[in-house]
Design a protein around this nucleic acid. Structure first.
Lengths: 337, 337
DNA sequence: ATGCAAATTGACAGCGCTGTCATATGTGTC
DNA sequence: GACACATATGACAGCGCTGTCAATTTGCAT
């Protein structure tokens, strides 16, 4: 039979309520009693029943990780974040649940409400691209659900983690500039993903800082997919003065650019330098291996979740943490011919 | 304030117990009453509280999806299965939870027990490679936890889905044979993954059926990683009589083989045909695009979960379903020179 | 109509925990 | 030593639902 809180109480010769206090790290338990109870719990391998705790305490010990699977077909990026969030939740004996949530569709609020009513998460972790969707944040506020974001930008008042994508993009373009490139193209992402804007801004910033003129023809809109990278590259290669380097806003599109280069008979990196963003597994498996930006996704998920849990515990010191990126120079970028 | 079962009961002029019966699709409720209760639920947008249901009913409405993240670093394969499982669970108002579980380590049973005691899943979905790990299955039986597998083979008495990997591998090799290849190599996977054995068996079967002698030098052990594919290929290319085609047991290794071919100055597919297994996104993004086997991962996850839910509902008609595979012929395989 | 089994409905306790509030025990002050 | 006050502990109800079992109604053969 299951060991209940009452059993522990009897074993430790205290009231059930005191065991409950120890279980929840509440104040007003003497050190001696606390120790005795802890030992009894340990000895009996006591495991509180989540449903009973939830019912009585009106909290679920559940964190939901929200993601938009519409524009994010089964990406490894999300899987890594998930891994980190899970690790953080486990460490504090919270449960974690993945919940897809399409931004699109007018029944968005209803679907979000259903999600909350059905699962009662104590808090949620938001992942790109739904970190900045206003109706979502508004609804979470109204429902009183705390949240933390894994976000491409820092937003006042929010907690979670962010990586300075603009700075990362700028660093990437500066790498190309240092190799002597002057005609540097950019393939941008879906415009309503925050990330696209920041990466584009970093590109512009670097170009401007180098004293170069911006050529609108060198910026082509993509959609974060392999195919859109191919299409964008074809467009770029058709220019009278084709670029000597292409910076794609993610690795999938960069792969597409490389594919199109093959197709056009351009050798990478001899004739064309190509670089991406994200460092997906594919990046190091391509031939040549792709120069890209690496962000610590797993760590970001973990940190964001820890911030959220901090908030749930009532401690006020949760914050927005900045995470580092790193430039991965591989074989797809080389000095300008 | 939250709408409770009691509120619905009052609105429908029945006892709470009757509402409970309707909620749980139990027998012995007249059609008229059932309809009236359903309408009241609908009108009031009633959502049962999971924790109360769990506590009173001794079931969690939770399905855990178990995976071994040790040899499966953030793969899209798992993400797709997860998607399918989630869809199935949602459709029956069950919750779903991902739980990593390393097979390795002597505290395996303790970790599994902790997982069960902490979350109380009503059932679990097993994913490769832990579908056939005997201590796991034994422990699940002892704890009385039903499970369904997404498995590379059919095991008597188990429920879930399986894909005939041996047949698929055989089909792939037959494709190479039909292109005229006779010296066909195989790069196998980690030996304690069930999948490796079945794919290897399919390879042997096809070779034998074609009346060819098996050459042990043409079968090289890999580890399902890109790097191990490179290493295996180098070994194969060093043979006096090198193969004209390589069938790798998964796409990552096939990519490695292609990389090594580049390195060795061999053109794919002119000088060497290469094919893989799984159809990961990378497969169609490689240049040349990879010929491979596609399995309906998402659908498999969904079906496995539905079988499990069937079992949980007490209906006895849950079974092991066979799922179809499809040969994706792309650009990495061509007639023998 | 009458009796009897089957179908339908309801009363009530209790799942394992926590919130509220009362009680007991210690601590410092003059 | 008497008092106020803080700290520590416990008694008890109840969270929202379901299991058990008893009560009632219905259907059907007589």
């Amino acid at each position: 039979m299951r060991v209940r809180l009452e059993d522990v109480a009897r074993a430790a010769s205290v009231s059930p309520k005191t065991v409950s206090r120890v279980l929840n790290d509440e104040a007003n338990v003497s050190d001696a009693t606390r120790k005795r109870v802890r030992e009894a719990m340990e000895a009996m391998d006591y495991r509180p029943l989540p449903s009973a705790r939830s019912l009585a305490g009106n909290r679920s010990f559940l964190v939901a990780m929200l993601y938009d699977n519409n524009d994010n077909p089964a990406s490894t990026y999300l899987a890594e974040i998930q891994d980190g969030v899970l690790e953080a939740c486990d460490s504090q004996r919270y449960s974690m649940m993945m919940r897809p949530l399409r931004m699109r569709g007018d029944d968005f609020v209803r679907r979000l409400d259903a999600l909350i009513s059905d699962h009662h998460p104590d808090g949620v972790v938001l992942t790109p691209p739904i970190t900045d969707y206003a109706p979502l944040l508004k609804q979470l506020h109204e429902r009183g659900i705390p949240y933390a974001s894994v976000s491409p930008m820092s937003r006042a008042g929010n907690i979670g983690v962010h990586m300075d994508e603009q700075q990362a993009a700028r660093t990437m373009v500066e790498h190309l500039l240092s190799l002597g490139h002057r005609r540097i193209a950019h393939v941008s992402g879906i415009s309503d993903h925050g990330a696209s804007g920041w990466r584009l801004a970093g590109y512009h910033e670097a170009i401007a800082a180098a004293g170069l003129a911006t050529d609108p023809a060198l910026v082509v809109q993509g959609a974060f997919t392999f195919g859109s990278g191919v299409a964008a590259a074809r467009q770029l290669f058709a220019l009278k003065q084709r670029p000597t380097a292409v910076f794609a806003a993610n690795d999938d599109m960069a792969s597409g650019v490389m594919w199109a280069a093959h197709e056009a008979g351009l050798k990478v990196p001899q004739d064309l330098s190509v670089c991406g963003f994200d460092d997906i597994p594919l990046a190091s498996q391509l031939w040549p291996a792709l120069t890209t930006i690496r962000q610590p996704s797993r760590e970001m998920g973990k940190m964001a979740a820890l911030q959220l849990l901090e908030l749930l515990r009532g401690r006020g010191d949760a914050q927005m943490m900045q995470m580092p990126f790193s430039l991965q120079v591989r074989d797809s970028t080389a000095p300008v011919p």
